[in-house]
Amino acid sequence: MSAGGASGVTRAEVCAVACAEVFRGVGEVMASAFGTAPALGARIARLTFAPDLVLTDGDAALIDGAPALGESPSGCVVESHMPYRRVFDVVWSGRRSLIMMASQIDRAGNQNISAIGPWNRPKAQLIGVRGAPGNTVNHPTSYWLPDHSPRSFVEEVDVVCGVGYARADAAGEAAGRFHDVRQVISNLGVFDFDTPDHAMRIRSIHPGVALEEVVRATGFPLEIPSDLEETRFPTPTELSLIRDVLDPRSIRDRELRG
């Protein structure tokens, strides 16, 4: 899928760089990134504008460097031990920046990865809440949805796993103190919650996407700013990192439909 404009840049490459932007300015924190575009994004950020970012090997180590997608990180330099028990120390201390995926996300920023339909007999059982409840009330969290549709962008999620703004507010000061749902990146655009009532708004639209397409694919009324921007293209450095270093096998293209 071509993103148009700059020659040959694909939508997947625009999405990867949009994910990288999540890590701009976060400082020396642990980056966790689920999904292909987020995994690429964290590595792009680490190798360019966010050199202090701490990456993991996806197992129990922190690594100095950024392996290519789909390749064993065993060649990377290990800089620390990070078994799951220590991950919780990091999560609860707030020294983490995260991009999670979501089967559903709603207008208030609630995320669902647990179940679709009634709890006692789900229409679709998903993976489970995982760490989403704890992540979202402890450190900045963003989301990646590679298939933007009225089924994934819903008025209200079926099960609140990741906590959105209204729910965090209602749960009291302890829930809101470190709550910070920042961005939602989809295959169509970048979204945030910088509105008076923290309702989701579109912040930038990916090159080649019509606003009408985003509105149609969203299952609730989307806030649309008057100065809507276009998501930026990758720089030449970023493009060559993506194509030559981090994803020479183009794994990124399999995540997006079409």
């Binding site: 609860w92 647990s114 809440v129 760490g131 989403a132 409840p133 704890g134 979202t136 009330v137 402890n138 099960v159 609140v160 796993c161 990741g162 906590v163 729910r167 965090a168 209602a170 749960a171 009291g172 302890a174 829930a175 103190r177 470190f178 709550h179």
Partner: peptide
């Protein structure tokens, strides 16, 4: 713990 606040767990 803070984890769980506001969520459906």
């Amino acid at each position: 713990t803070r984890a769980g606040l506001g969520s459906d767990v």
